[in-house]
Write a protein that binds this DNA or RNA. Structure first.
Length: 255
DNA sequence: ATGTCGGAATTATTCCGA
């Protein structure tokens, strides 16, 4: 089974690019973030024509998450309870016995911005929700754009005084892991520096000035099935003239 | 420090967010 997470940065602008990737990589379950469209605008038929079911939690212009799956999906949750004012950022569906959640964690902007404490609060709410709904001995995946570099190795410019790198974010992220989740990439490759996001500006991708902020987390039952985890760097590049997202897909292959 | 995108508001140009 192949699972993946991908912040597509606008599904209307990215649809043909995403379809190209689906045909090439043939994933079984995909968490998508930053759809930037409402549910009635979601191009469900385009995905169904490729053999995927869809569950969506969108909104106008910003945020928005969805799950694509080869097999039937039972919708379990749309939205993070208590955090509705922060936008559409979480969806969970049960697929092939896995509780599969994808999230788009608030960016926070900078340490002085009022969105920074809101980001921390959202992460605390996620931890509490996860601890309540997804026991450590269950089979569950939590993937998405976390907008946090878990450790210095996950950044091209480590600096604990800048957002994505602070102890406040990392402590809350660790608290989430402590509920019984494994960072599938880092668990398999403890010392490898790989990124998942590169700024569109400054030639950042070409210079490999990136961050690892797109993560696949799983419970022990998932971790034991992992045969590989990788960033699909080719899909951060233009494909047949189509513009890429600023995030690459991150893929895990499970036995 | 910020060179690129996507989308909204408004009508090709500017802003906002990332």
């Amino acid at each position: 089974m192949r699972i993946a997470t991908w912040n597509v940065n606008g599904l209307r602008a990215r649809l043909d690019f995403v379809l190209h990737w689906l045909r090439s990589r043939q994933p079984d379950i995909v968490g998508l973030q930053e759809l930037k469209l409402e549910d009635d605008q979601f191009p469900a038929m385009s995905f169904e024509a490729e053999g995927y079911r869809v569950v969506t939690h969108g909104q106008k212009a910003w945020n928005g998450v969805a799950i694509l799956s080869r097999e039937p999906a039972e919708l379990l949750q749309r939205g993070l309870p208590g955090q509705e004012t922060m936008g559409s950022r979480l969806i969970t569906a049960r697929i092939e016995g896995i509780d599969f959640t994808t999230i788009y964690l608030p960016n926070g902007k900078n340490l002085e911005h009022q969105d920074f404490p809101r980001k921390l609060a959202w992460l605390e709410s996620l931890r509490d929700h996860w601890a309540t709904c997804h026991p450590a001995d269950s089979s569950a995946v939590l993937c998405g754009d976390f907008n946090v570099c878990p450790a210095p190795i996950d950044s091209w410019h480590e600096d604990p005084a800048t957002i994505f790198h602070t102890g406040e974010e990392r402590q809350r992220f660790q608290h989430l892991l402590d509920t019984g989740l494994i960072d599938l990439f880092r668990d398999r490759y403890p010392e490898v520096q790989k990124y998942s996001w590169w700024d569109y500006r400054m030639g950042a991708f070409h210079r490999n000035l990136g961050l690892r902020i797109d993560l696949l987390l799983g419970t022990r039952a998932i971790g034991e099935r992992v045969s590989d985890v990788w960033t699909d760097r080719d899909y951060r590049k233009k494909q047949e003239g189509l513009t890429a997202s600023d995030h690459a897909p991150v893929i895990a292959d499970l036995d």
